Computed example of a mutant assay.
Amino acid sequence: MPQDVDFHIPLPGRQSPDHTRAEAEQLAWPRSLGLIKSDAAAERHLRGGYADLASRFYPHATGADLDLGVDLMSWFFLFDDLFDGPRGESPEETRHLTDAVAAALDGPLPPSAPPIAHGFADIWQRECEGMTPAWCLRTARHWRNYFEGYVDEAESRFLNTPYDSAAHYLAMRRHTIGVQPTVDLAERAGRFEVPHRVFDSAVLSAMLQIAVDVNLMLNDVASLDKEEARGELNNMVMILGREHGWSRDRSISHIQDEVHARLEQFLLLESCLPKVSEIYQLDAGEREALERYRTDAVRPVISGSYYWHRSSGRYDAEFALAASSQGYLEELGSSAR
């Protein structure tokens, strides 16, 4: 099973000490918004282990800060599931929904906005609490890139032109994997901000791209069986097979090598951060924020993703069957109009 492929991540896994409480309460928020309406949908959501994922992504967070992370993970996967049916093959329908959600970045939503949009608006409001305007602008930009990526995916499906180049696919998938907004929330959950003049530095940008790439490669391998079952063609394993004529096993082995090489580079980049602090003349508080960004934001999004993918029920056969059932898609569709 691809989900059992070992990538030998050289980063220790961490988990919030408040994870048991957060897991017990995780359904309250999506139920309150009408995003989960039935016991079957609730059971399916729990099998995904999204509270577990949040507690690994934000091991430094507890209480309301961890709850925000849990709600974000719940929202991410509920939103993503909306595109598993016909909507995900229609650029027009995809654009209509992503625009309705992204409108929350610009101000209050109309009452007629779909529940999934109101859910995002609630997260966005809480996400910006206590953060600087510069941070909110930067994070909003990342969210817009995320939503735009869904339209790109829908256009590929609509035109029946699956990606034939891993490089082209990576450029699109880096947005829809949602890693950058996930890392952004680590700052909010920890009540710190990486110095803005350092954020776009070569070293930090390279570290973040590695985190993104590792996440999407782990996800594509874990979700391979599920995506093959529903006829999805845009998966890195499949794309490598088309591009190079490789077998499935050869493609997975190549992805393992790519992850290993990227993580070796990541560790090297980490060792450069003291020099970055020196070049940008960071004061003591800024140096501490940069170190927290390394330990509480970028590292956990790599290790947390790895350990969650190996334990989550989202990618097992039963989950995939539930996702493809017409009743489940109708329930999701009714919540998105």
Rank of each mutant, 00 (worst) to 15 (best):
S205Q: 13
L216C: 13
V203K: 06
E243F: 01
N215R: 06
N235F: 12
S205D: 12
R230D: 06
N234P: 04
N215A: 14
H244Q: 13
V194M: 15
W246Q: 13
L224K: 00
K226G: 12
L204C: 14
V212D: 12
R230G: 01
F199R: 14
R197T: 09
F199E: 11
N215E: 07
R191H: 15
M207N: 01
F199Y: 15
M236H: 14
M207D: 01
V212C: 10
V198I: 14
L233H: 13
M207L: 14
A211C: 15
V212H: 09
A206K: 10
R197F: 09
G241S: 13
E228I: 15
M207S: 01
K226F: 08
I239F: 00
M207P: 02
N234H: 07
M217D: 11
K226T: 07
D200H: 15
L216K: 00
F192Y: 15
N235G: 10
L204G: 07
R197K: 12
F199C: 10
D213G: 01
M207V: 03
A222T: 15
E227C: 07
A222V: 10
E232L: 01
I210F: 05
R230A: 01
E193V: 01
D225S: 12
L208A: 11
G231A: 05
L216F: 15
A202G: 08
E227W: 09
D213L: 01
V203G: 01
N234K: 04
V194W: 11
M236E: 12
L218E: 02
F192W: 12
L208P: 00
G241C: 06
